[in-house]
Design a protein around this nucleic acid. Structure first.
Length: 222
DNA sequence: AGCCTTTGACCAGCG
DNA sequence: TCGCTGGTCAAAGGC
């Protein structure tokens, strides 16, 4: 995917990534502040976000240390997909969402026993902290996130973060602007265009590990 | 019985 | 045009 020669060597400094070649790659990377806590939540199940997912494939992609798993939302008429990479110790290293759910969560209490909304909030908080920089996602195809559907049809909800609950929480209307619009100009653009459409929003989570990132010619290699 | 995961094969896009 | 790579399909097995 992202590969090139080497020059700069940094630890996972996502701000750098986001402000640097990362934009060029359209990748969204998030630094883990919870140091595994949040990620372990995400790693619990593929359906950690409350939706039901069915795995339809797994691949070991070049440039990635770990195999990438592909999931589809099992909800009829919902074509949301997500893919993530999981490290050998079971932690999610990257999560990418494609599309957005246009349906409510199937059974919230399926995970959150008793439908504990606080749990959801907590998890959202975890993820918010985890992904505060990455949910300004851009699609993963080298296109800026503000890219609309080819035909301009806003058929998809504009936001696909790691957690749909963001939508429930009014994410669309007013979500942590201070988080998203400062260190990445794209983020503002993205949210400015929420009313329009996005084909994809991608989210990357970094697990509880570090890796090196190298940059050359605007490309990044981990 | 139904759903999900696993896994190899196939297909399409790109350089 | 060919090879590589990522994404998807579908059969088989397990829970």
């Amino acid at each position: 995917m992202v590969s090139s020669g080497a020059s700069a060597h940094v630890e996972v400094d996502l701000d750098k990534l986001n402000s640097g070649g990362n934009i060029a790659t359209g990748l969204q990377v998030s630094q883990v502040e919870g140091r595994g806590s949040g990620l372990s939540v995400a790693a619990e199940r593929s359906s950690d976000d409350g939706y039901n997912w069915r795995k339809y494939g797994q691949k070991h992609v070049k440039g990635s240390e770990f195999p990438r798993s592909y999931y589809k939302c099992t909800h009829p008429n919902c074509e949301v997909k997500k893919l993530f990479e999981r490290s050998h110790d079971g932690q999610i290293t990257e999560i990418v969402y494609k599309g957005t759910h246009d349906h409510p969560k199937p059974q919230p209490n399926r995970r959150y026993s008793g439908g504990n909304i606080m749990s959801m909030q907590e998890e959202r908080s975890d993820k918010a902290s985890l992904t505060s920089r990455d949910d300004r996602g851009y699609n993963n195809y080298g296109q800026p996130s503000h890219t609309a559907e080819p035909d301009g049809t806003p058929e998809l909800s504009p936001v696909a973060t790691n957690d749909d609950s963001l939508e429930d929480a009014g994410f669309l209307s007013n979500r942590n602007n201070d988080e998203v619009d400062e260190d990445d100009p794209f983020s503002k653009r993205r949210f400015d265009n929420l009313g329009q459409s996005y084909s994809f929003c991608c989210l990357y989570l970094l697990a509880d590990y570090k890796f090196s990132v190298e940059q050359k010619n605007g490309s990044w290699k981990c």
